[in-house]
């Protein structure tokens, strides 16, 4: 949050500060300074709290819009694309070959997103470079097998939100410094969480583990 931007913001509101100064009859030598202090404080605080996240997070769109609602309706259930393999590992975001189980050369639906999909990726047999909202950093080991119906029987909304009702893919925001998706470190800069999928960092996992199993777990349980 560069100082320059701060300065620009201050000049525009200087006239407001001046009026306040005239009103208050103040004979202390410091009055002048204190008022300016308060103004600069409020301005910088608001500026950095609102402006900083915009600068910190880069916004990227998905290669094309993906309509979960339609696909859940068509495919019947989530396991069609997101499933546990024989060795207990999680398939994650489906590969092109899973899409090709239904999609063929000409588009099935009417949306032009599907046209993009068929032309750019299906025809060229190129994997779709999805931006994964819930992508954990490389040092994290997350076992889906331990959390879904083979383990803790958690509902996937708890971590991924109501994704099965979404018709459009929201913008993927990524922290420019750390490379983390914003869903990991939390949408709200102060870390205030309204629902459980707003943030999924270590403390969130720890809280749930503590409640469920009485212990946050030893480091290697979630790290690799």
């Amino acid at each position: 949050m560069s100082e320059l931007e701060n300065k620009a913001k201050n000049d525009s509101t200087i006239s407001a500060g001046e009026k306040i100064a005239q009103k208050i009859k103040d004979d202390k030598g410091l009055g002048q300074g204190v008022i300016l202090f308060i103004i600069a404080f409020v301005v910088c605080f608001a500026g950095s709290t609102l402006l900083f996240p915009k600068l910190l997070y880069s916004k990227k769109e998905q290669p094309f819009n993906f309509d979960h609602y339609l696909h859940v309706y068509e495919a019947g259930d989530c396991e069609a694309c997101h499933y546990l393999r024989e060795d207990g590992s999680f398939s994650g975001i489906p590969k092109l070959e899973t899409c090709m189980e239904c999609h063929v050369e000409e588009p099935l639906g009417v949306t032009d997103d599907e046209v993009v999909f068929v032309k750019e990726y299906l025809a060229k047999d190129k994997e779709i470079p999805w931006h994964v909202y819930a992508k954990q950093p490389d040092c994290v080991f997350f076992s889906h097998a331990g959390h879904i119906d083979t383990g803790a029987r958690m509902d996937f909304n708890e971590c991924h939100g109501p994704i099965e009702e979404t018709k459009t893919s929201r913008t993927y925001e990524e922290n420019r410094i750390t490379g983390y998706s914003r869903d990991i470190w939390g949408k709200n800069i102060f870390g205030i969480k309204k629902n459980s999928w707003d943030r999924m960092k270590m403390d969130d996992c720890a809280k749930c583990h503590k409640e469920e199993t009485g212990h946050q777990g030893y480091c290697f349980q979630c790290h690799k």
């Binding site: 546990l84 024989e86 060795d87 207990g88 590992s89 080991f141 076992s143 097998a145 331990g146 083979t150 383990g151 290697f220 690799k224």
Partner: peptide, 17 residues
């Protein structure tokens, strides 16, 4: 330890965690 993690995943999948 990653092999233990994989073994636990497999155990979860086959029901005797």
């Amino acid at each position: 330890y990653h092999r233990y993690q994989a073994a636990r995943d497999k155990a979860y999948y086959h029901g005797d965690k």
